[in-house]
Design a protein around this nucleic acid. Structure first.
Lengths: 201, 201
DNA sequence: ACCTGAACACCGTTCAAGT
DNA sequence: ACCTGAACACCGTTCAAGT
Protein backbone atom coordinates (compact mmCIF):
# COMPACT_ATOMS: atom_id res chain seq x y z
CA UNK A 1 0.00 0.00 0.00
CA UNK A 2 1.14 3.50 -0.88
CA UNK A 3 1.32 6.19 1.76
CA UNK A 4 0.95 9.56 0.09
CA UNK A 5 1.85 12.93 1.58
CA UNK A 6 -1.18 14.96 2.50
CA UNK A 7 -1.05 17.49 -0.36
CA UNK A 8 -1.81 20.58 1.74
CA UNK A 9 1.32 20.69 3.88
CA UNK A 10 4.67 20.21 2.14
CA UNK A 11 6.85 19.05 5.03
CA UNK A 12 10.46 19.92 5.63
CA UNK A 13 12.59 17.45 3.69
CA UNK A 14 12.91 14.17 5.48
CA UNK A 15 16.67 14.11 5.60
CA UNK A 16 19.08 17.01 5.47
CA UNK A 17 22.03 16.56 3.10
CA UNK A 18 25.32 15.58 4.71
CA UNK A 19 27.49 18.23 6.34
CA UNK A 20 24.81 20.89 6.39
CA UNK A 21 25.83 21.67 9.94
CA UNK A 22 29.00 22.76 11.65
CA UNK A 23 29.93 24.68 14.79
CA UNK A 24 30.05 27.99 12.96
CA UNK A 25 26.55 27.69 11.56
CA UNK A 26 25.18 26.59 14.92
CA UNK A 27 26.78 29.54 16.71
CA UNK A 28 25.56 32.07 14.15
CA UNK A 29 22.03 30.72 14.51
CA UNK A 30 22.38 30.76 18.30
CA UNK A 31 23.35 34.44 18.40
CA UNK A 32 20.60 35.28 15.91
CA UNK A 33 18.05 33.44 18.00
CA UNK A 34 19.17 35.19 21.18
CA UNK A 35 19.03 38.56 19.43
CA UNK A 36 15.48 37.99 18.18
CA UNK A 37 13.92 36.41 21.27
CA UNK A 38 14.15 36.31 25.03
CA UNK A 39 16.47 33.93 26.89
CA UNK A 40 13.53 31.60 27.65
CA UNK A 41 12.92 31.06 23.96
CA UNK A 42 16.54 30.03 23.50
CA UNK A 43 15.80 26.36 23.18
CA UNK A 44 17.58 23.45 21.57
CA UNK A 45 14.38 22.77 19.66
CA UNK A 46 14.03 26.37 18.48
CA UNK A 47 17.70 26.48 17.52
CA UNK A 48 17.38 23.30 15.44
CA UNK A 49 14.22 24.57 13.76
CA UNK A 50 16.04 27.78 12.81
CA UNK A 51 18.78 25.62 11.30
CA UNK A 52 16.30 23.43 9.45
CA UNK A 53 17.47 20.19 11.06
CA UNK A 54 16.21 17.77 13.65
CA UNK A 55 16.84 18.76 17.26
CA UNK A 56 19.44 16.11 17.86
CA UNK A 57 21.56 17.09 14.84
CA UNK A 58 23.04 19.89 16.94
CA UNK A 59 24.38 17.31 19.38
CA UNK A 60 26.73 16.04 16.68
CA UNK A 61 28.67 19.30 17.04
CA UNK A 62 28.17 20.35 20.66
CA UNK A 63 27.92 18.19 23.74
CA UNK A 64 24.88 20.11 24.95
CA UNK A 65 23.28 23.46 25.62
CA UNK A 66 25.91 24.55 28.15
CA UNK A 67 28.72 24.10 25.64
CA UNK A 68 26.78 26.20 23.14
CA UNK A 69 26.31 29.00 25.66
CA UNK A 70 30.02 28.98 26.48
CA UNK A 71 30.85 29.10 22.78
CA UNK A 72 28.41 31.99 22.31
CA UNK A 73 30.41 33.94 24.87
CA UNK A 74 33.62 33.35 22.97
CA UNK A 75 31.95 34.29 19.68
CA UNK A 76 30.59 37.52 21.16
CA UNK A 77 33.88 38.47 22.78
CA UNK A 78 35.55 37.95 19.42
CA UNK A 79 33.20 40.34 17.67
CA UNK A 80 33.66 43.12 20.23
CA UNK A 81 34.94 46.19 18.45
CA UNK A 82 37.81 47.14 20.68
CA UNK A 83 39.78 50.32 20.03
CA UNK A 84 42.83 49.45 17.96
CA UNK A 85 45.76 48.16 19.96
CA UNK A 86 48.39 50.88 20.03
CA UNK A 87 52.02 50.20 19.29
CA UNK A 88 53.83 50.13 22.66
CA UNK A 89 56.05 53.10 21.73
CA UNK A 90 53.12 55.32 20.74
CA UNK A 91 50.94 55.00 23.81
CA UNK A 92 47.70 56.93 23.91
CA UNK A 93 46.40 58.45 27.10
CA UNK A 94 45.85 55.35 29.28
CA UNK A 95 42.74 56.83 30.91
CA UNK A 96 41.14 57.32 27.51
CA UNK A 97 42.10 53.81 26.43
CA UNK A 98 40.50 52.25 29.53
CA UNK A 99 37.43 54.37 28.96
CA UNK A 100 37.06 53.21 25.38
CA UNK A 101 37.67 49.56 26.28
CA UNK A 102 34.90 49.66 28.89
CA UNK A 103 32.60 51.46 26.48
CA UNK A 104 33.22 48.79 23.86
CA UNK A 105 32.36 45.97 26.28
CA UNK A 106 29.26 47.81 27.43
CA UNK A 107 28.17 48.39 23.83
CA UNK A 108 28.65 44.70 23.12
CA UNK A 109 26.68 43.51 26.17
CA UNK A 110 23.90 46.05 25.75
CA UNK A 111 23.59 44.98 22.11
CA UNK A 112 22.89 41.36 23.09
CA UNK A 113 20.62 41.58 26.12
CA UNK A 114 19.28 38.00 26.02
CA UNK A 115 22.77 36.58 25.70
CA UNK A 116 23.83 38.76 28.62
CA UNK A 117 21.16 37.20 30.87
CA UNK A 118 22.45 33.75 30.03
CA UNK A 119 26.08 34.70 30.55
CA UNK A 120 25.91 37.11 33.47
CA UNK A 121 26.05 34.48 36.19
CA UNK A 122 28.72 32.25 34.69
CA UNK A 123 32.37 32.69 35.56
CA UNK A 124 34.37 34.24 32.73
CA UNK A 125 37.36 32.24 31.67
CA UNK A 126 39.20 31.55 28.45
CA UNK A 127 42.06 33.12 26.60
CA UNK A 128 40.35 36.06 24.94
CA UNK A 129 39.09 37.45 28.23
CA UNK A 130 42.52 36.97 29.81
CA UNK A 131 44.09 38.95 26.99
CA UNK A 132 41.50 41.67 27.43
CA UNK A 133 42.15 41.78 31.19
CA UNK A 134 45.88 42.13 30.65
CA UNK A 135 45.36 44.98 28.23
CA UNK A 136 43.17 46.92 30.67
CA UNK A 137 45.50 46.19 33.58
CA UNK A 138 48.43 47.37 31.48
CA UNK A 139 46.72 50.69 30.85
CA UNK A 140 45.82 50.95 34.54
CA UNK A 141 49.48 50.42 35.34
CA UNK A 142 50.53 53.17 32.92
CA UNK A 143 47.96 55.38 34.63
CA UNK A 144 49.85 54.93 37.88
CA UNK A 145 48.31 51.96 39.71
CA UNK A 146 50.48 49.22 41.14
CA UNK A 147 49.82 45.56 40.17
CA UNK A 148 47.50 44.90 43.12
CA UNK A 149 45.43 48.03 42.66
CA UNK A 150 45.24 47.48 38.91
CA UNK A 151 43.74 44.03 39.53
CA UNK A 152 41.10 45.40 41.88
CA UNK A 153 40.36 48.33 39.59
CA UNK A 154 39.86 46.01 36.61
CA UNK A 155 37.38 43.89 38.54
CA UNK A 156 35.49 46.97 39.72
CA UNK A 157 35.28 48.31 36.18
CA UNK A 158 33.92 45.01 34.84
CA UNK A 159 31.43 44.70 37.70
CA UNK A 160 30.11 48.16 36.93
CA UNK A 161 30.04 47.55 33.17
CA UNK A 162 28.09 44.29 33.50
CA UNK A 163 25.72 45.75 36.08
CA UNK A 164 25.04 48.76 33.87
CA UNK A 165 24.36 46.60 30.81
CA UNK A 166 22.05 44.31 32.80
CA UNK A 167 20.12 47.23 34.22
CA UNK A 168 19.71 48.74 30.75
CA UNK A 169 17.97 45.56 29.67
CA UNK A 170 15.69 45.58 32.71
CA UNK A 171 14.63 49.22 32.45
CA UNK A 172 16.32 51.14 29.64
CA UNK A 173 17.96 54.39 30.61
CA UNK A 174 19.46 57.15 28.51
CA UNK A 175 22.81 56.46 26.83
CA UNK A 176 24.63 59.11 28.85
CA UNK A 177 23.92 57.23 32.08
CA UNK A 178 26.70 54.69 31.54
CA UNK A 179 29.26 57.39 30.78
CA UNK A 180 28.27 59.30 33.89
CA UNK A 181 28.98 56.31 36.11
CA UNK A 182 32.06 55.20 34.20
CA UNK A 183 33.69 58.62 34.36
CA UNK A 184 32.96 58.85 38.08
CA UNK A 185 34.45 55.40 38.69
CA UNK A 186 37.52 56.24 36.62
CA UNK A 187 37.98 59.52 38.46
CA UNK A 188 37.82 57.67 41.77
CA UNK A 189 40.23 54.96 40.64
CA UNK A 190 42.79 57.17 38.88
CA UNK A 191 42.25 60.58 40.40
CA UNK A 192 40.43 63.46 38.71
CA UNK A 193 41.11 63.96 34.99
CA UNK A 194 43.47 66.76 33.96
CA UNK A 195 41.55 70.06 33.87
CA UNK A 196 42.58 70.95 30.28
CA UNK A 197 40.32 68.33 28.70
CA UNK A 198 37.48 68.50 31.22
CA UNK A 199 35.36 71.12 29.42
CA UNK A 200 32.07 69.49 30.45
CA UNK A 201 30.77 70.68 33.85
CA UNK B 1 -10.98 -6.02 49.22
CA UNK B 2 -8.61 -4.21 51.51
CA UNK B 3 -5.72 -2.19 50.12
CA UNK B 4 -2.95 -2.02 52.68
CA UNK B 5 -0.09 0.43 52.69
CA UNK B 6 3.11 -1.24 51.70
CA UNK B 7 4.78 -1.24 55.15
CA UNK B 8 8.19 -0.07 54.01
CA UNK B 9 7.26 3.37 52.73
CA UNK B 10 4.93 5.47 54.89
CA UNK B 11 3.63 7.97 52.34
CA UNK B 12 2.90 11.62 52.90
CA UNK B 13 -0.65 11.97 54.23
CA UNK B 14 -3.20 11.88 51.47
CA UNK B 15 -4.77 15.21 52.25
CA UNK B 16 -3.20 18.14 54.08
CA UNK B 17 -5.39 19.74 56.79
CA UNK B 18 -7.15 22.94 55.81
CA UNK B 19 -5.30 26.24 55.93
CA UNK B 20 -1.88 24.66 56.18
CA UNK B 21 -0.69 27.11 53.57
CA UNK B 22 -0.55 30.87 53.26
CA UNK B 23 1.57 33.40 51.40
CA UNK B 24 3.97 33.80 54.32
CA UNK B 25 4.75 30.11 54.57
CA UNK B 26 5.17 29.84 50.81
CA UNK B 27 7.60 32.78 50.72
CA UNK B 28 9.65 31.49 53.62
CA UNK B 29 9.97 28.12 51.90
CA UNK B 30 10.83 29.85 48.62
CA UNK B 31 13.71 31.82 50.17
CA UNK B 32 14.91 28.71 52.01
CA UNK B 33 14.85 26.71 48.79
CA UNK B 34 16.75 29.41 46.92
CA UNK B 35 19.33 29.61 49.69
CA UNK B 36 19.93 25.86 49.68
CA UNK B 37 19.95 25.18 45.95
CA UNK B 38 20.72 26.75 42.61
CA UNK B 39 18.19 28.78 40.66
CA UNK B 40 17.51 25.81 38.37
CA UNK B 41 16.32 23.73 41.31
CA UNK B 42 13.85 26.45 42.24
CA UNK B 43 10.84 24.62 40.96
CA UNK B 44 7.14 24.73 41.76
CA UNK B 45 7.33 21.01 42.39
CA UNK B 46 10.36 21.29 44.70
CA UNK B 47 8.73 24.19 46.53
CA UNK B 48 5.54 22.21 47.12
CA UNK B 49 7.48 19.17 48.29
CA UNK B 50 9.34 21.34 50.79
CA UNK B 51 5.96 22.58 52.05
CA UNK B 52 4.55 19.05 52.23
CA UNK B 53 1.65 19.75 49.88
CA UNK B 54 0.69 18.90 46.34
CA UNK B 55 2.22 21.09 43.66
CA UNK B 56 -1.01 22.84 42.81
CA UNK B 57 -1.76 23.86 46.40
CA UNK B 58 0.65 26.76 45.95
CA UNK B 59 -1.52 28.11 43.14
CA UNK B 60 -4.28 28.81 45.68
CA UNK B 61 -2.08 31.60 47.07
CA UNK B 62 -0.04 32.81 44.11
CA UNK B 63 -1.05 33.11 40.49
CA UNK B 64 2.16 31.44 39.35
CA UNK B 65 5.92 31.25 39.60
CA UNK B 66 6.45 34.82 38.44
CA UNK B 67 4.31 36.25 41.21
CA UNK B 68 6.29 34.21 43.73
CA UNK B 69 9.58 35.55 42.41
CA UNK B 70 8.29 39.12 42.62
CA UNK B 71 7.14 38.51 46.18
CA UNK B 72 10.53 37.02 47.06
CA UNK B 73 12.11 40.31 46.00
CA UNK B 74 9.80 42.26 48.30
CA UNK B 75 10.48 39.84 51.15
CA UNK B 76 14.23 40.12 50.70
CA UNK B 77 14.16 43.92 50.45
CA UNK B 78 12.17 43.98 53.68
CA UNK B 79 14.76 41.96 55.54
CA UNK B 80 17.67 44.12 54.39
CA UNK B 81 19.40 45.49 57.48
CA UNK B 82 19.66 49.12 56.56
CA UNK B 83 21.49 51.55 58.83
CA UNK B 84 18.96 53.22 61.13
CA UNK B 85 17.18 56.17 59.61
CA UNK B 86 18.56 59.31 61.22
CA UNK B 87 16.32 62.03 62.60
CA UNK B 88 16.33 64.85 60.02
CA UNK B 89 17.83 67.36 62.50
CA UNK B 90 20.73 65.10 63.47
CA UNK B 91 22.07 64.20 60.03
CA UNK B 92 25.09 61.93 59.86
CA UNK B 93 27.75 62.41 57.23
CA UNK B 94 25.80 61.82 54.01
CA UNK B 95 28.76 60.14 52.33
CA UNK B 96 29.00 57.61 55.11
CA UNK B 97 25.24 57.00 55.01
CA UNK B 98 25.30 56.30 51.26
CA UNK B 99 28.26 54.02 51.78
CA UNK B 100 26.48 52.00 54.45
CA UNK B 101 23.26 51.80 52.43
CA UNK B 102 25.13 50.36 49.44
CA UNK B 103 27.03 47.97 51.67
CA UNK B 104 23.75 46.75 53.17
CA UNK B 105 22.25 46.08 49.74
CA UNK B 106 25.40 44.32 48.62
CA UNK B 107 25.43 42.19 51.78
CA UNK B 108 21.81 41.26 51.14
CA UNK B 109 22.33 40.32 47.48
CA UNK B 110 25.57 38.47 48.10
CA UNK B 111 23.82 36.51 50.86
CA UNK B 112 21.17 35.20 48.47
CA UNK B 113 23.05 34.41 45.28
CA UNK B 114 20.43 32.14 43.67
CA UNK B 115 17.68 34.67 44.31
CA UNK B 116 19.91 37.33 42.80
CA UNK B 117 20.20 35.37 39.52
CA UNK B 118 16.42 35.18 39.29
CA UNK B 119 15.93 38.85 40.13
CA UNK B 120 18.86 40.52 38.37
CA UNK B 121 17.20 40.88 34.99
CA UNK B 122 13.76 42.02 36.18
CA UNK B 123 12.90 45.69 36.50
CA UNK B 124 12.75 46.83 40.11
CA UNK B 125 9.52 48.48 41.09
CA UNK B 126 7.34 48.68 44.16
CA UNK B 127 7.09 50.98 47.13
CA UNK B 128 9.96 49.70 49.27
CA UNK B 129 12.50 50.23 46.53
CA UNK B 130 11.12 53.69 45.80
CA UNK B 131 11.52 54.60 49.47
CA UNK B 132 15.07 53.29 49.43
CA UNK B 133 15.85 55.28 46.28
CA UNK B 134 14.53 58.47 47.83
CA UNK B 135 16.64 57.95 50.93
CA UNK B 136 19.83 57.51 48.92
CA UNK B 137 19.00 60.43 46.63
CA UNK B 138 18.31 62.57 49.70
CA UNK B 139 21.75 61.80 51.07
CA UNK B 140 23.29 62.47 47.65
CA UNK B 141 21.55 65.85 47.67
CA UNK B 142 22.93 66.66 51.11
CA UNK B 143 26.34 65.69 49.77
CA UNK B 144 26.02 68.45 47.19
CA UNK B 145 24.47 66.88 44.05
CA UNK B 146 21.54 68.52 42.29
CA UNK B 147 18.37 66.49 41.61
CA UNK B 148 19.46 65.36 38.16
CA UNK B 149 22.94 64.30 39.21
CA UNK B 150 21.56 62.56 42.30
CA UNK B 151 19.32 60.45 40.08
CA UNK B 152 22.18 59.42 37.83
CA UNK B 153 24.46 58.78 40.77
CA UNK B 154 21.88 56.54 42.44
CA UNK B 155 21.50 54.46 39.30
CA UNK B 156 25.27 54.15 38.91
CA UNK B 157 25.62 53.03 42.54
CA UNK B 158 22.94 50.36 42.15
CA UNK B 159 24.39 49.15 38.84
CA UNK B 160 27.77 48.73 40.48
CA UNK B 161 26.31 47.07 43.59
CA UNK B 162 24.30 44.51 41.59
CA UNK B 163 27.21 43.85 39.24
CA UNK B 164 29.56 43.29 42.15
CA UNK B 165 27.15 40.91 43.91
CA UNK B 166 26.58 38.95 40.69
CA UNK B 167 30.28 38.65 40.01
CA UNK B 168 30.89 37.44 43.56
CA UNK B 169 28.50 34.56 42.90
CA UNK B 170 30.22 33.71 39.63
CA UNK B 171 33.79 33.74 40.95
CA UNK B 172 34.08 34.75 44.60
CA UNK B 173 36.53 37.51 45.37
CA UNK B 174 37.81 38.86 48.66
CA UNK B 175 35.43 40.99 50.74
CA UNK B 176 37.55 44.13 50.43
CA UNK B 177 37.01 44.14 46.65
CA UNK B 178 33.52 45.63 46.88
CA UNK B 179 34.67 48.39 49.22
CA UNK B 180 37.53 49.26 46.89
CA UNK B 181 35.18 49.84 43.97
CA UNK B 182 32.48 51.50 46.05
CA UNK B 183 34.88 54.00 47.60
CA UNK B 184 36.30 54.82 44.19
CA UNK B 185 32.84 55.34 42.72
CA UNK B 186 31.80 57.52 45.67
CA UNK B 187 34.97 59.57 45.36
CA UNK B 188 34.24 60.13 41.69
CA UNK B 189 30.62 61.03 42.29
CA UNK B 190 31.07 63.27 45.33
CA UNK B 191 34.68 64.38 45.13
CA UNK B 192 37.51 62.97 47.24
CA UNK B 193 36.72 62.32 50.92
CA UNK B 194 37.97 64.83 53.50
CA UNK B 195 41.58 64.06 54.38
CA UNK B 196 41.03 63.97 58.16
CA UNK B 197 39.21 60.61 58.09
CA UNK B 198 41.05 59.02 55.18
CA UNK B 199 43.67 57.24 57.26
CA UNK B 200 43.73 54.19 54.94
CA UNK B 201 46.16 54.53 52.04
C1' DA C 1 -12.17 28.02 50.15
C1' DC C 2 -8.52 25.16 49.86
C1' DC C 3 -6.19 21.14 48.33
C1' DT C 4 -5.42 17.01 45.08
C1' DG C 5 -4.11 14.31 40.90
C1' DA C 6 -4.36 13.67 36.05
C1' DA C 7 -3.32 15.77 31.89
C1' DC C 8 -1.21 19.11 28.40
C1' DA C 9 2.32 21.32 26.07
C1' DC C 10 6.66 22.16 26.73
C1' DC C 11 12.10 21.24 28.15
C1' DG C 12 17.17 18.91 27.61
C1' DT C 13 19.05 14.73 26.66
C1' DT C 14 19.67 9.33 25.80
C1' DC C 15 19.22 5.85 22.65
C1' DA C 16 18.70 2.93 18.65
C1' DA C 17 18.33 3.35 13.99
C1' DG C 18 18.95 5.05 9.29
C1' DT C 19 22.27 6.46 5.33
C1' DA D 1 30.25 10.50 10.36
C1' DC D 2 26.24 12.82 10.50
C1' DC D 3 21.39 13.12 10.95
C1' DT D 4 16.62 11.40 12.51
C1' DG D 5 12.63 10.22 15.56
C1' DA D 6 10.93 7.99 19.57
C1' DA D 7 11.31 7.96 24.33
C1' DC D 8 12.55 9.46 29.22
C1' DA D 9 12.50 12.37 33.02
C1' DC D 10 11.67 16.64 33.84
C1' DC D 11 9.08 21.71 33.66
C1' DG D 12 4.83 25.31 34.56
C1' DT D 13 0.17 25.40 34.35
C1' DT D 14 -5.07 24.09 33.24
C1' DC D 15 -8.74 21.51 34.63
C1' DA D 16 -12.14 18.70 36.96
C1' DA D 17 -12.81 16.75 41.16
C1' DG D 18 -12.74 16.03 46.13
C1' DT D 19 -13.83 17.92 51.08
Amino acid sequence: MVISHSPGRPRRRVRAPRNTLNRERVLTAAVDLLDHAGPDEFTMRALAKRLGVATMAVYSHFSGKDEIIDAVRVRLLAEAELPSDQAPDAPADPREEIRELCRAVHRLLAGHPSALRLLADRPVRGDESRQFAERVKGALGRAGLDRDRAGRAFIALMQFTVGAALSRGASPSDPAQFDYGLDALLAGLLGPPPADEGARA
